[in-house]
Amino acid sequence: MLDLKELWLFALLGVAALWFWRAQGIREIALRATLQHCVGEEVSLLDQTVALRRIGLRRDNALRLRLWRRYQFEFTVTGGERYRGHTDMLGMNVSKITLPPHRFVSTPDDRRLH
């Protein structure tokens, strides 16, 4: 038979597993949003991954306290240089994706006639 200490331990392990499972889901949302943003900006997401860099508490637009996460990723334009960007998540929502200044590669369609 289980005593109270063992029940608390199982409950704690269950909560930890649930938190880990939900965190992985939020990371997947951040990865999909980052990939979509990189495609729109015509840059290549390197390693096809985002990495958790910071975590904290922030308020959303309704002034509710939410868990804030910053994920870092690397991207390239030319294949030769690596740049670091970040994706901010507030709860399960993407709040901001930031790409630092980087090179642009001109395509034949960008030629202008003067």
Score class of each variant (00 low, 15 high):
M1F: 14
M1L: 13
L2N: 09
D3Y: 13
L4S: 13
L4K: 15
K5C: 05
E6T: 14
W8N: 12
L9S: 15
F10Y: 11
L12D: 10
L13A: 09
V15E: 09
A16W: 13
L18K: 13
W19H: 10
A23H: 05
Q24G: 01
G25R: 06
G25S: 05
I26M: 02
R27F: 00
E28R: 05
I29Q: 02
A30T: 00
L31M: 07
Q36P: 01
H37R: 07
C38M: 03
E41S: 06
E42T: 15
V43P: 04
S44C: 10
L45E: 01
D47Q: 15
D47T: 12
Q48D: 15
Q48I: 03
T49F: 03
I55Y: 08
I55A: 14
G56N: 13
L57N: 07
L57F: 14
N61K: 12
R64S: 06
L65S: 10
R66V: 10
R69F: 02
R70Y: 02
E74H: 08
V77R: 03
V77T: 12
T78L: 08
G80V: 08
E81H: 10
R82Y: 04
Y83E: 09
Y83F: 15
H86Q: 07
H86G: 03
T87S: 10
T87H: 03
D88V: 05
M89K: 02
L90Q: 03
L90Y: 00
G91V: 05
N93E: 15
N93I: 09
V94C: 14
I97Y: 01
R103N: 12
S106E: 07
T107F: 04
T107P: 00
P108T: 04
P108V: 02
D110Q: 04
L113Q: 08
H114E: 09
